[in-house]
């Protein structure tokens, strides 16, 4: 076994309201490790770099293949998925922090409720429930399906929300991902039947107008979703809807 060690500096927090503190860890190197593997190593042997016993570091993860979004944390200053953050590609010491745009539950675990509330607000779903069989929906053009599929890769990890300067305590901005989801469901042939509701939710409190085009979202999105394209496309749609509905009144 190699004598190499991995040096981790982790920002921790015991409770929702308690103060944050940092703790350093040194763990034995194995080839092909990711950040999750390091956290598992700390869980197995919860001692800090001086060998003093401590509580294991808490984190969230599920799929370990960058499709669930649960392990988003700030790694060396950038919000990203811990599972796809490979140790061999990271500069040491590796600094782990929770994404503080969200309330911290404990250590690296954050509460993403605001993202699900945002998805509820913009009605990011296709309503198909009824009291009778609605029959098959209209078909989607292959040309649209191809780009819409890219938008459907969003797994609400929160990296875009964390990096956005306009998501802060002075605004109620729902975040870039929700705007992109409106574009996705407004493109879906059945979802389109409720497009006005979604556009109006984007004009509501914390809607699309809070975007200031810093374009950090598209830089940090782990799935490479064209968030800024979605925002610009929805800007056009929302403005057209606002003007058209005012003229019809």
């Amino acid at each position: 076994m190699s004598q190499k060690e991995i040096h981790l500096i982790i920002e921790r927090q015991d409770h929702t309201d308690s103060a944050a503190y940092t703790q350093e860890f040194k763990i034995p190197y194995r080839p092909n490790m990711n950040v999750i593997a390091c956290l598992m190593e700390i869980q197995r042997n919860p001692t800090d770099k001086d060998g003093k016993g401590t509580s294991p570091v808490c984190w969230e993860s599920n799929c370990l293949e960058e499709v669930c979004g649960a392990c988003m944390m700030v790694i060396n200053g950038k919000p990203r998925q811990a599972c796809s953050a490979l140790i061999d590609q990271l500069e040491q010491p590796i600094r782990l922090k929770p994404a503080r745009t969200f309330p911290v539950v404990r250590d690296l675990v954050i509460d993403r409720s605001r993202m699900f509330k945002a998805l509820q607000k913009v009605k990011a779903w296709v309503p198909i429930d009824g009291t009778y069989d609605l029959g098959p929906g209209p078909r989607m053009a292959e040309r649209d399906r191809q780009w819409a599929y890219e938008l459907s890769k969003c797994f609400t990890c929160g990296a875009c929300v964390e990096a956005c300067p306009n998501v802060n305590e002075r605004t109620k901005f729902i975040g870039p991902f929700a705007i992109s989801q409106v574009r996705l469901f407004n493109t879906h042939p059945t979802g389109e039947m409720h497009k006005e509701d979604r556009l109006e939710s984007l004009m509501g409190e914390g809607g699309i107008h809070e975007c200031g085009n810093s374009q950090n979202c598209v830089q940090v999105c782990p799935k490479g979703i064209p968030l800024t394209t979605s925002i610009a496309a929805m800007n056009g749609a929302v403005n057209r809807h606002a003007i058209a509905s005012w003229l019809k009144r």
């Binding site: 990096a163 306009n166 200031g212 374009q215 950090n216």
Partner: peptide, 24 residues
């Protein structure tokens, strides 16, 4: 008011567009 409600994180994320966001 817009300048007041905006957040400023170009120190953390120094991508060109974010720097222009602050400059604006």
């Amino acid at each position: 008011y817009v300048a007041y409600t905006s957040g400023y994180n170009a120190g953390k994320y120094s991508w060109g567009r974010n720097v222009f966001f602050v400059l604006q």
